[in-house]
């Protein structure tokens, strides 16, 4: 039982990071119908900028408390990522808005390759360790271990997701975003500046990605220039699992994928009589995805969408 609970806790921590990243995918997809392959790299840039900012602030002439350093470093990461995402959209996606469907997919892939390699030039090939900014404490709860970092990750994620839902559903900007997702043409007839809304969507998504990058590097206490690609892939899977274009779906899909992965990794050996080890955790995750999509072709919470050509 305690192993199960432990896997559930690990899954929730992993899943809340996936959910944050998946939100960025799903918001862009909802409005542009585009798989933003470069989103994972934005997560990586967020983590890298955070670590750089921490070392600059910590080694500077000013003596700052650790919490001040963290807050400033996170803000720097969000700021840099937002600007980055703004320019990615401007350069690689906006000129292609009426192009054939696969053209922006290729520019997105190009952007991803570009960002990953520029990051390697700036931050090098080696793994960067997360600095000791706070005391890690471990609590035992019904036989399973929880650290304060893990609690913090889940808490922050929930808070951010709740405030995002509030922004989307309660504010004027949110209404404009929902209208644009329904139909950009009609939204612009109603006085919505579609271009601004799209830029804003990218900026919000990048902000979430920056925070997710910080959280994931805090969780594994490591960051690397190639961390974004796989994370982005998993998050995109989560977004599809939940029903792409649907915000609640992305959150549900993210948490679910995290749980599937960690429970799968823990139990897949017993299930298959030792034939498959924990190396197969991704197989397990993708199989669940395929099974879900066979029965619900538009994901768990997705609605029937018309085909785009």
């Amino acid at each position: 039982m305690d192993i199960f609970l432990q896997q559930v806790i690990n899954g929730l921590v992993l899943g809340s990071v996936y959910a944050l990243v998946a939100l960025g995918y799903t918001m862009v997809y909802g409005i542009l119908g585009l798989i933003n392959f470069a989103h994972g790299e934005v997560v990586m840039v967020g983590a890298m900028v955070f670590l750089t900012a921490v070392s600059v602030l910590g080694g500077g002439p000013l003596v700052l408390s650790n919490s001040t350093i963290i807050v400033f470093a996170v803000l720097t990461a969000i700021f840099v990522c937002s600007i980055l995402a703004f320019f990615i959209e401007r350069i690689a996606y906006r000129p292609l808005r009426n192009a054939p469907r696969l053209a922006p997919l290729i520019t997105a892939i190009g952007m991803s390759i570009l960002l990953q390699n520029i990051a390697m030039m700036i931050w090098g090939r080696q793994y960067r360790t997360f600095p000791e900014l706070f005391q890690i404490e471990s609590y035992t709860f019904a036989g399973a271990n929880v650290t304060n970092v893990q609690l913090f990750i889940v808490g922050i994620s929930i808070a951010i997701m709740a405030s995002l839902l509030a922004v989307i559903h309660l504010t004027k900007v949110g209404r404009a975003m929902r209208a644009t997702a329904e139909s950009p043409q009609i939204a612009s007839l109603m006085g919505v500046n579609v271009n601004t809304v799209i830029s804003l969507t990218f900026i919000i998504g990048a902000g979430l990605a920056a925070i997710a990058g910080v959280l994931v590097s805090a969780n594994y206490s490591i960051a690397h220039y190639s961390m974004g690609f796989i994370l982005g892939l998993k998050a995109f899977t989560a977004a599809v699992l939940g029903g792409i274009g649907n915000l609640t779906g992305a959150m549900v899909g993210g948490i679910l994928l995290g749980l599937i992965e960690s429970i799968g990794a823990g139990y897949i050996g017993d299930l298959t009589g030792g034939f498959m080890g924990s190396h197969y955790q991704d197989v397990f995750a993708f199989l669940v995805l395929i099974i879900v999509l066979v029965f619900r072709p538009t994901g768990i919470m997705g609605e029937r969408v018309a085909d785009r050509s």
């Binding site: 350069i91 690689a92 290729i106 520019t107 892939i109 190009g110 952007m111 991803s112 390759i113 570009l114 990953q116 390699n117 520029i118 030039m121």
Partner: peptide, 9 residues
């Protein structure tokens, strides 16, 4: 790889 990505874009 940077040049390659640029070429794709």
């Amino acid at each position: 790889m940077v040049l390659f990505g640029l070429a794709l874009i």
